[in-house]
Design a protein around this nucleic acid. Sequence first.
DNA 1: CACTCCATAT
Length: 722
Amino acid sequence: MAPAVPALRRPIVSLHRTPPPLQNLRRHSFSPIPHEEPCDPPNSSATLLSRAAALLNFAAQPSHLSQIHAILLSSGLLRCFPSLSAKLFSSSADLDLIQEARHLLDEIPRPSVPLWNAAIRLHSRHGAFADALHIYDKMLHQGVVPDGLSLPPVLKACGGLPAPTVGRAVHAHILRRGFETDLFVQNGLVAMYAKCGQIPCARAIFDRLSDRNVVSWTSIISGCAQNGFPLEALQIFARMRSSSDVRPDFIALVSVLKAYMDIEDLDQGSSVHGLVIKLGLDDEPDLVITLTAIYAKCGQVRTARSLFDRVPSPAVILWNAMISGYAKNGHASEAVELFREMIARHIKPDSVTIRSAILACAQLGSLEVGKWIEDYAGHSQFKDDIFVKTSLIDMYAKCGSIAHAHRVFECIPNKDVVVWSALIMGYGLHGRGREAIRLFEEMKCARVRPNDVTFVGLLSACKHAGLVDEGWKYFHSMRHYGIEPRHQHYACVVDLLARAGRLEKAYEFVRSMPMEPEVTVWGALLNACKIYGHVGLGRYAAERIFALEPSNAGHYVQLSNIYASVGMWSDVAKVRVLMKEKGVTKAIGCSLTEIDGKLHSFRAGDKSHPRYKEIFEKLAELEMKLKKSGFVPHMGSVLHDLSMEEKEESLCNHGERIAIAFGLISTAPGTTLRIMKNLRACVNCHSATKLISKLVGREIVIRDINRFHHFKDGLCSCGDYW
DNA sequence: CACTCCATAT
């Protein structure tokens, strides 16, 4: 069978014009391969053969190689000189041309062991594990005896399979062949078992090693770190430091940092940073990437950025670490900005970059920037990437346009469970629970199996829409799918029960949980207690929360609101004192709105905007209209009795309303206003906005920290429960 | 021979 030869755009003669190989060839005058005589030589074949053999040494680009391949085929040389096939094979392997190498291997009558090894290594290195194993199998079937270099890539391929079955067979094979003393093979075994999740096996082999080099230690450490055992990884690293004089190299430290990243221990992580510097490895690109990632992931974006900035031309992965670090830690605009800088510098993003940039847009909440990124992704080579599409669905939902999210969804040919879950979650965010349920049912009809995240989406959709009975039913259907409910699921049910006013039942439900309730669960109870003014239970839930998460200001505010709703002012004051004692400060309320592709941010009584005079005129007009139609501030008495904290709350209302006023004067009548805020919607503001939507005949879409509120004709999509 | 960045979750 002839190997596939790519179509040539230019005539073959152009090869002879390609300067470097030919010039080199003339200068060095390579001798022809002596012992092989052409069987039926075409014209001047000896010259061609010598040139071809030499050219292969210089084939530095796939296009060179395929042209040489074409010459050899069309001239008949390949058929006459089998040695050229082997040479062609090695060149293809060196250039990572897997397909080409694979075809050539089949053409070679009796490949040597190094040739087999090269073929296995090539496939293994590129993740073509099944192919690598297939080639190994074929080698054995031809009676070829593998050497010590054959097995490490075979083991690597076994490690890429989900089950250790094949790996065990190869292990047995190794013992039979007597390779068990080869350190490289041993290291390969350790890594293989660790990757298949067989950590005890990996450790057993590692422990029995009489001689351990840096790769042995690295294999077991990274095996643990990469497979969900960060603590074991760190424990072994400690043993490496104390009981051996093997110096960790950059790869070992990358894995150690990854383990600290997983347990989010930045303190220890930065002490490893110290070690990195001490060992003089701080310019090692992979370590810079991992260090940047750990700082960014733990919220130290400035430190991460300073590492990033020290690198003159960062690799794509480093850009990714920085961009996703920004996106995940509330620095969405920096993430988008950095992504733009990357494009401006003509650095080609990969699919991870694009996904991180889309995530940043989702956090940013700007529909305009969101459309821009979709356009960008649509023109990239990742336009059909299901991961990219999934994040677009999430992004559009979080940017307030469920219609856009649905459009992306519709265009995905083979929707997997994550795609469905993302849209279900999106409908839930917008309070459209019925549609979320319909989607869920459609998904089941499409024979896609829901997972635990699907149920988080579905139950939170029921929660946001107040579909109590449906939520209860779906919660209990989880077990039919063999899904064990987790905290988020319990939290949704607690919320649903409490919403229906069944606080006692909700508490009973919390007590019946098979695990220790976490903040989300108590938080749901606390929220409901605020709605129903249930002081006793609210206080209890708050105490549990404070024990678990003492520095989150939102919880203190909730408790304070419960006291306020029933007029317990002295307790409100006590909460304030408690906050001061613990050094907890409330996040400053901030509302954003986007006009003509530009984001405008408004804070407490903000007068910094260039058009603030017009804005405040509009605001006064709105206040008057509200008063005229009988609007009474809901928490008037609260404001009267409280100082700092509630004042802030009231100012936050202003911030939101300033954004509305600004939107009204900046857009054509009837345009939907879109506003994002960093806190949850507050009662006073919420009822005012409902009325405003009616008074000015506008649809107002507000994204708070938890969900969307669609205000229209005096009503809100949340049904006044959030 | 060993390694880093990654979509869906209150």
